[in-house]
Structure formats: C-alpha cells, structure tokens
C-alpha cells in the first residue's frame, strides 16, 4: 500500500483511511464508511498525514550538502 492518511469524520468522529495520492488536498467529498456522511477534508477536525520515513529519506538525500 502506498501512502495513506487518516481522517476523522466530522459527524460520527470515527477515523478511517484514505489514499494520499488519490485524495489528499483534493476538493472531493470523502465518504465516511461508518455513518454514510459525505464531507470535505476541510470539515474534519483531525487529519493525520505524517510520512516519517520519506522525511528521513529527504534528509539523507540532502545530507551531502552539509
């Protein structure tokens, strides 16, 4: 699986998983699988899109500059 982010549904407050490349920062309504609510990402109070390893990879790749 590639990069995912988790998002909390503004209606039922439950969290589900979404594909980062397909849907993050897009103005597309997501579908809450728990309560059938459709909502935009801006309506969610919690989105977790951390990607630690790629950040570490980025640091490593530019380390030769230091």
């Amino acid at each position: 699986m590639a990069r995912i982010f988790t998002i909390v549904c503004p209606k039922c407050k439950k969290e589900f998983e979404v594909h980062f490349g397909d849907l993050r920062h897009k103005e597309i309504k997501l579908h809450c699988p728990y309560c059938d609510n459709w909502f935009l990402q801006t309506e969610s109070e919690k989105i977790d899109d951390r990607w630690f390893l790629s950040f570490l990879w980025f640091l490593w790749s530019i380390s030769f500059l230091w």
Partner: peptide, 9 residues
C-alpha cells in the same frame, strides 16, 4: 488482512 484505503476509482 488489512484495509485498503478509500480511493478515487
């Protein structure tokens, strides 16, 4: 045995 995420399909 894990979830595949919501996608644009």
């Amino acid at each position: 045995g894990t979830y595949g995420p919501q996608r644009w399909r």
